[in-house]
């Protein structure tokens, strides 16, 4: 049964990666990033349940905190991006071109 959860987590991670690569809207990319983080969380919890070890769940706690902090800062950056370019298309910021 753990296998099932691991597979689910892997697939969820894959969906998240796919979303980041494919979508151009920066907010949707952020959401897909959250998907990836959640997939990792699921993996950690599954393993913690398998080994009856609490450390996995503690790590998940920390991951959640970091994810929260990261979302906050990321959103601030996106706000700045929007203020400068008036759009959330991520391809607009091509100042490093050539």
């Amino acid at each position: 049964m753990i296998t099932f959860y691991l597979i689910i987590a892997a697939l969820l991670f894959g969906i998240g990666v796919l979303g980041i690569l494919v979508r151009r809207n920066v907010l949707v990319m952020l959401m897909c990033l959250e998907l990836m983080l959640n997939a990792v969380n699921l993996t950690l919890v599954a393993f913690s349940r398998l080994h009856a070890n609490l450390e996995g769940q503690i790590f998940v706690l920390f991951v959640m905190c970091v994810a929260a902090a990261e979302v906050v800062v990321g959103l601030a950056i996106i706000v700045n991006l929007f203020r400068n370019f008036y759009t959330v298309d991520v391809d607009i910021a091509n100042g490093l071109k050539n």
């Binding site: 990666v17 690569l21 151009r24 991520v90 391809d91 910021a93 091509n94 100042g95 050539n98």
Partner: peptide, 16 residues
């Protein structure tokens, strides 16, 4: 120089 498109999506794909 053509590699430096400036597009974040391209960079992400190359990263992946």
């Amino acid at each position: 120089r053509e590699l430096q498109t400036g597009k974040i999506s391209f960079y992400l794909v190359s990263l992946f």
